[in-house]
Amino acid sequence: MRKSVHWGIITVMIVALALAAAGQVSAQAKKNPYKDPVKIAYLPDNIGDTVGAAWGVGIKREFAYFPNITYQVFDGKLSAETQNQIMTELINQKYDCIILQAHDAAALAASAREAEKQGIPVIDLNLDAQTPHTCLVAMVDYEAGSLVAQEIAKGVGDNGNVVIIEAPPGASRGINVEAGFRDTLKAHPGVKILAAQDGEWLTEKGNTVMRDFLTKYPKINAVFAINDAMAEGASQAAAAAGRKMIIWGADGEKKALQYIEQGKLTGTIYTNCYDEGATAARMALYAIGAEINGSKFTKTPIIKMAPIVVTKDTVASIAEKDRW
């Protein structure tokens, strides 16, 4: 008897909630993004990551001028599930645009598609969701990997062993950078790739992975880490083991530039992330006002950011205000 009363109570509560709510579905009319109140969300993979934070600064600076823009930052916590939950939340709250850094290309595809279907343009930064949508703003990836491969081949004199510290699986940037790296190295048969392992984008894991490599391989001439954080970890591990080698990262964060100046890192591919964030922000405002429908695209249009190859010789050319 009591049991059914309790089930009854909870069913009544849910029905009451449903009745109490006024369901409304409104069509998204094209707004004027510079006048009408708009809500824009920024959902990076990991808000504590230096790259993600730099983009956030760039976006914020861009939006600061327009008082009608409500800008909200979320944390993907390095989890596809969390990002999906937040995406659903953003779609329900009827945000006008989402700037997304997808943790995993396949896992975020459904959410991105749903957002576009609801008329919410999705602008991706570096890590793309595997579905055609409004825009992707990316650092050069394939080309970056290719540039590093050439630099490493030059540095080891076309003869040596290389290890790769990879991006987490499913990260579109990681896949492309590594592809560029491997493809270019095919033209340098004397340079052998000994191993590749996931460093989770983190310095801590890059350090651990590098330590494993140092244990396993007595002779490593060069390391390529897909992002600077992991490259710094690799550099710390190598220094702790007292082994010298060529270490390359990619991104161009301030700490990496400092490491290059101190000789702890050999080089990196620098992109101005403030600029990149600002570009995404501008694309967001453009997409809100333009009569385009991302859900009808068959391919995501890409904006690529031009890189600077940074080594000890060129690091001085990067101004303090451009160091993020």
Partner: peptide, 25 residues
């Protein structure tokens, strides 16, 4: 549970909407 629902419902107009409830469920 009821207190929570009432609190959220009263202080945020986004909470008691149909899509939100079913997302929540």
């Amino acid at each position: 549970l009821s207190i929570l629902i009432v609190a959220f419902g009263a202080t945020s107009k986004l909470f008691l909407t149909l899509p939100n409830i079913f997302t929540l469920l």
